[in-house]
Design a protein around this nucleic acid. Sequence first.
DNA 1: CCTCATACCTAGTTAGTCTAGGTATTGTCC
DNA 2: GGACAATACCTAGACTAACTAGGTATGAGG
Lengths: 107, 107
Amino acid sequence: MRPELLKGHLDVLLLAIISEGPAHGYAIIDELRHRSEEAFALPEGTVYPALHRLEEAGFVSSTTSRVDGRSRRTYALTGDGRQALAERRREWSTFKGAINAVLGEQP
Amino acid sequence: MRPELLKGHLDVLLLAIISEGPAHGYAIIDELRHRSEEAFALPEGTVYPALHRLEEAGFVSSTTSRVDGRSRRTYALTGDGRQALAERRREWSTFKGAINAVLGEQP
DNA sequence: CCTCATACCTAGTTAGTCTAGGTATTGTCC
DNA sequence: GGACAATACCTAGACTAACTAGGTATGAGG
């Protein structure tokens, strides 16, 4: 799948996963790959900066810890993040409907 | 709707509309806006270059004419374009399914 | 010891949409 | 007649977000 397709859609995926419970970057990458059945096998260079942007925007907060000797940054959804997720879900719904309408597919 | 969302998805929309019969740029913009119920109200600066890329890629061919004193460039789908459209439709289907799977929505 | 998996990071590239301008014709309203 | 909207095309440069390709470090298995 061409990488451009994901542009602008990654945030809602990350927020959705984090909304189900705090998670760290590497685990989020795994989760994305599995749930999408390998469709979203994203490089770290895509996901880490995206998480940083979400934190910058105040949609997630992070805490660092050490697990089995490895440093780990765990993300949790903020109140603003929950709002943003709801809005991004609606946005996805609109986008999907609009594309389907143009392609003449049933919703 | 944020403009980034469209990235990589415009081609399939243009190919789908042109596949229903030859059309010119301005009419395609109108058609997109109406079918998507204003969700895709795209500026000319988005659509014209996209059509040029599709022609460059060999997916559409164009002929110029003059209608009511105005010059007009009409696009038609090529054989390669028909193949590309089929592939892009499958790609959209995969993408949509993958996002829905991550968001936990029913297809 | 070497490789793989885990776990984080960032600078620079790339690609595609948008902004903001341009040209030209026709029709409408005052 | 003059201003303006609608039709119809075009392009250079800005912007943004995902990717490439590198880096660091630990632990486990062969």
